[in-house]
């Protein structure tokens, strides 16, 4: 398991390639990448992501450990950025390695659902008109009930 909480950008290609290499018994690698999406009005200047240093790493490790306990996984990678990001920039990625694709896909979805509402990150959107905290969606909380 590797968990990285960082301000710096990450290289999706290199991370995926490094993660995917070195296993002989993992038939499936699944990756998900979250990207800063512009607002419908097209006026998002930047997004600032605040987090809770100290808790963030532990919370992510706990979520990853739950995934490992539940599915047959060879490895898990989570990279999550904080600080100021502009539209189109990659915010985070998860990768799962498993002998079979069902485990890899399901575990990646589980990781994403829990990351959304159980990892201590908060997003604030900045436009020319001001700034607004992104509100958590009921659907994100509801998504946890399927697990």
């Amino acid at each position: 398991m590797r968990i990285e909480v960082q301000e710096a950008p990450f290289d999706l290609g290199r991370e995926t390639s490094d993660f995917a290499s070195g296993h002989k018994d993992m038939g499936a690698i699944v990756t998900f990448t979250g990207v800063v999406r512009d607002l419908a009005r097209g006026d998002l200047d930047r997004m600032e992501i605040e987090h809770y240093p100290g808790m963030t790493q532990k919370a992510l490790e706990k979520i990853a450990a739950q995934a490992q306990a539940r599915w047959s996984l060879g490895d898990v990678l989570v990279i999550h950025r904080h600080g100021a990001l502009t539209p189109g920039e990659m915010i985070m990625m998860v990768a799962t390695a498993a002998p079979h694709r069902k485990d890899a896909f399901e575990a990646a979805e589980f990781l994403m659902d829990y990351l959304k509402s159980r990892a201590p990150f908060w997003k604030k959107e900045f436009t020319r008109d001001g700034a607004e905290w992104v509100a958590a969606k009921d659907a994100d909380e509801d998504a946890l009930t399927r697990w």
Binding site: M92, S117, A119, K123, A136
Partner: peptide, 23 residues
């Protein structure tokens, strides 16, 4: 993470925040 009725005995750090928006 805990609930508002959680005990504070021995606690060193308490944090308050809105629902999280990671991912």
């Amino acid at each position: 993470l805990t609930e508002f009725d959680a005990p504070l005995a021995g606690a060193r750090e308490v944090a308050f925040f809105p629902p999280m928006t990671g991912g």
